[in-house]
Simulated scan of single mutants.
Amino acid sequence: MKQAIVHIALVVRDYDEAIQFYTEKLHFTLVEDTYQPEQDKRWVVVSPPGTNGTTILLARASKPVQEPFIGDQAGGRVFLFLGTDDFWRDFDEMKEKQIEFVREPKETDYGIVAVFKDLYGNLWDLVQFKEGHPMYKRVMKE
């Protein structure tokens, strides 16, 4: 059996501002942006550069009950983890692009990690795994 997590839905305020953040500041690829008239919404999918793994579905809050979750989908915990093959390259560029880091880089037993906020305040780990860590091969392979 082979299965995969294909998309993770991320609730956003506005499609276009979210696309701009992910494509311009994080270099994600816009995989799909399709209008769905029957639901009056867009199907917007982005993906980190150089990967064929899980993508992010940018899902605009369409009901008032969804709006409080914009920027707080994990209740203040780190929600998403962006693995990289070159931590310092990405960290320095993200700082240049004025992405806010709420925890500075730290060497750990599994690699180098820092926590940043996306445009809505969701917390992300930027992480480069050490060779030998189980996630190292997954990041380097994809």
Rank of each mutant, 00 (worst) to 15 (best):
V12F: 11
F116D: 14
S62R: 15
V44R: 04
Y35N: 06
G71T: 14
T29F: 01
F101K: 12
D90V: 05
R89V: 03
D92F: 09
W88S: 07
A18Y: 06
T34H: 11
V45S: 04
K25D: 11
N52P: 00
K25V: 09
T34Q: 15
Q98C: 02
F87K: 13
D16R: 06
D125F: 02
F69M: 10
Q39V: 10
M1P: 01
F91I: 03
N122A: 10
G50S: 01
E107S: 13
M94K: 11
D125K: 06
V115I: 14
R77C: 05
F87T: 15
D86I: 06
K95D: 00
Q3N: 03
Q128H: 05
Y22T: 13
L58Q: 09
A18V: 07
V78R: 08
G50K: 03
K117Q: 14
E107R: 13
D118H: 11
R13G: 07
G53E: 15
V102C: 13
V102G: 14
G75T: 10
R42P: 00
D86Y: 01
H133T: 07
D14N: 10
G50T: 01
T54E: 09
N122D: 12
A4N: 03
G53K: 15
L80E: 02
Q20T: 14
Y15V: 08
Y15T: 13
E24P: 01
E93L: 04
D14F: 01
G121C: 10
L57I: 14
F28H: 02
T108C: 02
P49C: 05
G53N: 11
D16V: 05
A114H: 02
K95M: 08
D14C: 02
E100Y: 05
D72F: 09
E17G: 00
Q66H: 04
F69T: 06
K63H: 13
K106L: 06
E96N: 11
E38R: 12
R13L: 08
V6I: 08
G53P: 00
V65W: 07
Q20K: 15
T54L: 13
Q66Y: 04
G75M: 09
V127D: 06
V6F: 02
Q66M: 10
F116T: 14
I70W: 10
S47P: 00
S47D: 01
V115A: 12
F91C: 04
R60Y: 06
E17I: 03
K137L: 06
D40E: 11
R42Y: 09
R103P: 01
H133P: 00
A18E: 07
P37E: 13
Y110R: 13
Q20W: 10
K2E: 06
R42E: 10
L26F: 13
D118Q: 09
